[in-house]
Structure formats: C-alpha cells, structure tokens
Nucleic acid binder design. Structure first.
Lengths: 242, 242
DNA sequence: TAGCCGCACTCACATATGTTTATGCTCGAG
DNA sequence: CTCGAGCATAAACATATGTGAGTGCGGCTA
C-alpha cells in the first residue's frame, strides 16, 4: 500500500535532475502525514496556513463557491501534486481545497520552505517550477473553457488527466482510475451535469473512451487528442536543466 | 514621459518591503529596453526565450489560438507586469504574448534571474510571488468564466483591471485609460464581440460604468463589485513579510 | 433481504449567447 | 476635403447548453 518513492520527487525528476542531497531535503521536509476523507475540506478559503499540503494518495480539487451556490473547480490534483504550495507566499487562501476521494496528505511547514529558498537555489527553482506548471494548466483550461465546445473541452481534460496520472505511475496501459463524479466534472468544466452526461456519451459513441465506474480507458488516443485540440507542451514533461 | 520608478518595484513594494540592495539588483537586471508596436508579437508560442520581458508601459496580452482561428486571451497585462517570467523555468512558451498598444518593454536575461535565485533568497521569493499572483488571477478568471453570467464576468474583469491599474499609479480618481477593443474583451471573456457590446451597454444602462473611447470610469464601485461578485483577496494587495 | 441513497442517465422545454449581416461613427492618410 | 479602415452598434435568427423533473440501477446499511 505504501509507495516506495515520494510522488513529488517522481514528479520533479521528470522535469530535471535532483541531487541526492535535494531528495533528502524534500523527504525530510515532511512533518506529518494525515488522512482526509472524501468530501472533506483540506484547506478552506480565507485560511492562512503555516504549512503546505502535498498529496501522496487520492484525488483533490481546488474550488470556489459563487453567490448562487454554484461551484467552480479550478484545479484537479493527483498524487505528487502540491495542493497549496502557493499559500507559502500568497499567505491567504483565495479558494478552498477539498478531497474528492480519501486522501493521504503530507504537511510541509512554511518555515521549511523558507529554509529551502535560503539554502537550496536549484531546489527552490524546482518548487517554483511546480507552481508554474499549475499556472500553465490554468491557462490551458481558460482557453478550453472560453473557446472550445463542451465536447472538445471534456476530451482535452481527459487527455491531460491521463498524461498527468501516467507521469506519476498511476496508469495501467490505456487505463486510469478516475473516481470523479459527473457533477464534479461539470464543476470543473463549467457545465451542468446533464450536459456532462451528454458529452461523455458522445465521446463513448465515437469510440474514443470507455468510462465504467471509476475506470477510464483511452480507446483512441490520437483521435481524442484531435477532438480536444490537445498538445502536451504546457505540462512541461521535458527533462532539462532548470 | 519616462517614469521615475521602475513599475515592477512599485508593484512588489505593495506586497512586501524591498531592501535598497534588492531594488538596485532589480534595476540593474534590465539589459535593454525596446518598443513594440500595437498588434505585434512580443513572444511567440513555441519560443524558448533566454530573457523575460517586463512591461514598462502599455497594455499586453497572453493568448492562444485554437483550430478554427478563434483566440483566447488568458492574461491581460499592465505596466509593472512580467509578461513571461515563467519562461525562465518553463523554458518553452506554451502561448504567445502580444502588444495591445505600443509597449515599452525591458528585457531581463535568464542568467540574471538564475543569479538572483542563487544569491537573493528574499528577492527570489518576491519574483516567485509575482508568478503566483498571475496564477491566482487565472483561477479567478476560470471561476468567472465557468460560473458567472457574461455581465457578471465583465463587471468582475473591470473591477480587477481598475484595481491593478490603480496599484501601479495608473488611475486618475475613478477613471483609467483602457485602450482595449470590444473584440479583445470578447477574446478575454470567451464571448462574441456582439455579446460584449450588449453586456457593456447593460452595465452602462445600470449606471455602473462609463466607457467612452479609452476612458473607463467607475460610476458605482460598490454595485459593480456586487454585480461581478468581486473580492480583491486574490490580488494579494496586502503588504506583509514573504 | 429490504430499503435507501447517490449517481448515471433521460426527456421536454427554456434561454443565454453566438452568427450573420448591415449601418454609421471617427479618425488618420493622402 | 475625401476616402477608407477599424470599431461600436443593431436587429433577426440560430443553437449550444441549462433547467427541472423525473427513472432506474447498484451498493451500503440496518
């Protein structure tokens, strides 16, 4: 059940080389590990955390509630993702983070992060990079939301999640476990659940995906990418000096 | 015509104290200043810049083009903003940046940024913060785009731009110069220009704004904020230790 | 083993926003 | 002083997506 490697290290090592020293620093940055049950808040809007949460296992989402009770999910997180690394410098949370499934979460104190920025420049850049990738994903979502059809947007999201899960070793061939309800997908894409349903059926009918229970299978990667106008550049999956 | 203070310093000093030393480093980080005419690209998608562009004067936008030629603007920039600080670590541009008006742009070499991360931890955190604010704005736009009506979204954008311009000393009372066409606003909000027009007229009719030529005047700040469900937390306008 | 709850799925209908096409400013170029 | 380009505005009509009100299945829980 316990993973060998800290999934954050796995994630960062895909983007650049980490020294043994840096890995040790990251490992020891974790103070405590806790479990958060599905549908519980991990951080709340308005909080001023003194530690950042690293997702070790499970799925989580950043979200905001607007006046009429509608919800928008602005980020979906998979193991290896920092959920609120930005709270280290932004201080006040401008959104909440909730567990979509049972989550295993490691805490990294902000004082430790500060120490890293004081003493480990390259590691600092890697953490900075981590938040920059979040930003790149936000921009991609904005484009998809503003200018793609609902179907294309959904295809795009599926491509992204598949690659991100694969990058942290959570894909089994063409299949990933994606324990997200259609209502949650709607809150992510800015759609009603009814329309999410319509759109998923279209992707299924086109033979692009299978989605039974939590198991999402990519049936035709090339066509799915084309429908979703997906290119993976923004995920920075290249390993290079940073 | 020339501004006394580097507007980046103005922007950062709103968020935390900068030492004289840090300010000197920022000032001398600039190699050359260039002018880019309206509608010209400042950086192109796919580029791998070895310097980042700091906007000294003018308006600029990050954008992406999708298959059918439609365009989505994922960020609007005002003086003091870094246009592609993220290219320092992301390396490859996943979007273009274009000048909306004539722009005065300073170049900061990536080698200089690397040196800053090696030697100036606090200044590094301030630059990191700068990109985190970009990210916070992206999230806010996602929420507005996904869950607000077109009218509310427009009101929200206007509130944000007003505050951001004011924060770098570009507001004259309730008025700001906003040289952005309705087509560009549409590409920002994910709307057609026709609908942008409808929505602006509604805001005018409601007595919330005046928008003549480039001059945007806030007539009723409180109601505009309410219509746009706007709270400024995400802009991190608080001065505190970071 | 019954019953309930969450979730996927449906249908009929409503509407916010898009599309197409056209008009008339305003301002700069010549 | 005229012309044309770019932009804001307008009206008629089209459509993607939302809303409201269900049904039914599968898996917990008592």
């Amino acid at each position: 059940m316990t993973r060998m490697t800290n999934p954050l290290i796995l994630k960062l090592e895909q983007r650049d080389r980490l020294s043994d020293d840096e890995k040790k620093v990251l490992e020891s940055a974790i103070t405590r590990v806790r479990i958060v049950e599905a549908d519980e808040d991990i951080v709340r809007e308005g909080d001023r955390p003194n530690e950042s949460s690293l997702l070790l296992d499970g799925f989580a989402a950043r979200y905001k509630i607007v006046s009429n009770g509608r919800r928008q999910i602005s980020a979906l997180h998979v193991p290896g993702d920092f959920l609120d690394l930005h709270s280290f410098l932004l201080k006040t949370m401008d959104h909440g983070v909730l567990a979509l499934t049972t989550c295993r979460i490691a805490a990294v104190p902000h004082v430790t992060l500060e120490k890293i920025t004081d003493e480990y420049p390259h590691l600092t850049r890697m953490l900075w990079l981590n938040t920059l990738i979040d930003g790149a994903i936000h921009r991609e979502w904005l484009t998809a939301m503003g200018r793609l059809s609902a179907t294309a947007h959904m295809a795009h999201l599926i491509c992204e999640l598949y690659l991100r899960l694969k990058a942290v070793g959570r894909a089994e061939g063409d299949m990933v476990q994606l324990p997200i309800t259609q209502a949650e997908l709607g809150d992510t894409l800015g759609l009603s659940t009814v329309h999410v349903n319509r759109v998923l059926q279209e992707l299924r009918k086109e033979g692009l995906i299978r989605f039974q229970g939590d198991a999402l299978t990519i049936l035709d990667w090339e066509r799915l990418k084309k429908v979703g106008e997906f290119t993976s550049t923004y995920l920075s999956l290249q390993n290079e000096d940073r």
